[in-house]
Simulated scan of single mutants.
Amino acid sequence: MDSKKGIIFTGAVIGILAVILVRFGNPVNMGICIACFIRDTAGSLGLHRADVVQYIRPEIIGIVLGAFMIAFGKKEFDVRGGSSPFIRFILGFVVMIGALMFLGCPLRMVLRLGGGDLNALIGLAGFVVGIIVGIIFLKSGFSLKRTYRLSKFEGYLFPMVNIGLFILLLTAPAFIFFSKKGPGAAHASVWIALAAGLIIGVLVQRTRLCMVGGIRDAILFKDTYLILGFISIFVFATLGNLYFGFYKLGFSGQSIAHADGLWNFLGMALAGWGSVLLGGCPLRQLILAAEGNVDSVITILGMSAGAAFAHNFSLASSAQGPSPNGKIAVLIGFALLLMIAYFNLEKDVKATVKGGVRVGTN
């Protein structure tokens, strides 16, 4: 699966599964969105009370468990952590703020493009600019320091939490919230969504697919391996949307999207820059967490907190556009990223990036 054929196949499967999930109930152009689905899950647990985005998303659970099982079976489950955990929490928080300004993670950005949403082109431009800024800091010696080996049990906790979430989804106790309307109420059946997530988790773990990594490696190393997966998702999502009649070309009237170009650009620029500093996009963070990377678990907790904060304090965009509070939050996010990037420069470190993980050598 490390071949170019493998990454293209993975992208094709993700693109097709995303459209199939829409066919079976997920919102249009949101067959899979890591940021949105983490946000929905946070809402279902009561971390925010936006009643239109509350649902424990089985896709996330499936991705984690699929990646965990294949990593464990291939003896790639390696429990590590301790690399600037609180900074990673903040970075996860900031990436989520950027994603919810745009209304989607980098993966959904590609799927929106595949559905004809031209607003995602502006988001893509911002995403690339954010990645370029991140690369400048990587080349200048940015580092979040080394990781340390931790106990196996600590690595098992994240998959166990996801199993617990699945039990809550099936049993639906009174303290779990489920949307009756809006995007949270639009979902495929539990078992179809779980199966799709399991397949994606396995394939992405084997190929190391990463939305940020594809563009970063193409710019930094002229390596096109990861970006082929990015392109494949777009191509097959487009074909699937055309086949099912979901394709709608244009800027206006797009599903769960707004047409404010400036803030679509800035939202994805923020998400792209933050993801480069983290070493991978939100999808990649899920896979790393499933492989035993506790730092990525902390990042996901930061994303969950960011989602809750965004909806509790009216930071997230809506179909009507960005909120004033959201605009302020994005600007604060850029200031935070600049401080984190600057104060974690190591002038004597030469940086290399491989497989979504930054490695520093003295």
Rank of each mutant, 00 (worst) to 15 (best):
residue 190 V to C: 06
residue 150 L to Q: 12
residue 288 L to D: 08
residue 15 G to P: 03
residue 95 V to K: 05
residue 351 A to C: 11
residue 108 R to E: 10
residue 235 V to A: 11
residue 341 A to F: 11
residue 262 L to D: 04
residue 135 I to V: 14
residue 213 G to M: 04
residue 254 Q to N: 13
residue 220 L to V: 08
residue 40 D to L: 01
residue 134 G to H: 09
residue 297 V to G: 03
residue 260 D to I: 07
residue 358 R to V: 14
residue 296 S to T: 08
residue 246 F to V: 04
residue 234 F to H: 04
residue 10 T to M: 09
residue 297 V to N: 05
residue 32 I to E: 01
residue 211 M to H: 07
residue 244 F to D: 12
residue 105 C to G: 03
residue 62 G to L: 10
residue 115 G to P: 07
residue 233 I to G: 01
residue 268 M to L: 15
residue 45 L to D: 08
residue 203 L to H: 05
residue 160 M to Y: 02
residue 134 G to Y: 11
residue 307 A to P: 01
residue 326 G to I: 02
residue 271 A to G: 12
residue 157 L to M: 11
residue 1 M to N: 09
residue 37 F to C: 04
residue 244 F to G: 13
residue 318 S to C: 09
residue 356 G to N: 09
residue 237 A to F: 01
residue 327 K to M: 15
residue 256 I to N: 00
residue 299 T to I: 09
residue 283 L to Q: 04
residue 237 A to E: 13
residue 309 F to C: 10
residue 28 V to W: 00
residue 350 K to Y: 14
residue 138 L to E: 10
residue 257 A to P: 06
residue 126 G to R: 02
residue 264 N to H: 06
residue 232 S to D: 10
residue 336 L to T: 11
residue 142 F to W: 10
residue 100 L to R: 04
residue 249 L to G: 09
residue 154 E to T: 15
residue 317 S to Y: 00
residue 183 P to R: 08
residue 238 T to H: 05
residue 240 G to I: 05
residue 224 T to H: 05
residue 348 D to E: 15
residue 220 L to Y: 11
residue 147 T to L: 09
residue 202 V to G: 00
residue 112 R to M: 11
residue 234 F to D: 00
residue 140 S to F: 12
residue 84 S to D: 14
residue 264 N to G: 13
residue 278 L to R: 08
residue 100 L to F: 06
residue 228 L to K: 04
residue 251 F to V: 09
residue 155 G to C: 05
residue 143 S to M: 13
residue 360 G to N: 12
residue 159 P to V: 08
residue 21 L to N: 15
residue 131 I to P: 05
residue 322 P to C: 04
residue 140 S to Y: 11
residue 8 I to L: 12
residue 206 R to M: 11
residue 183 P to Q: 10
residue 209 L to S: 03
residue 237 A to H: 01
residue 222 K to S: 14
residue 98 G to H: 05
residue 194 L to A: 07
residue 361 T to L: 08
residue 281 C to G: 10
residue 205 Q to D: 07
residue 137 F to Q: 00
residue 359 V to Q: 13
residue 136 I to G: 13
residue 29 N to A: 12
residue 44 S to Q: 07
residue 350 K to E: 14
residue 266 L to D: 00
residue 183 P to E: 11
residue 187 H to A: 10
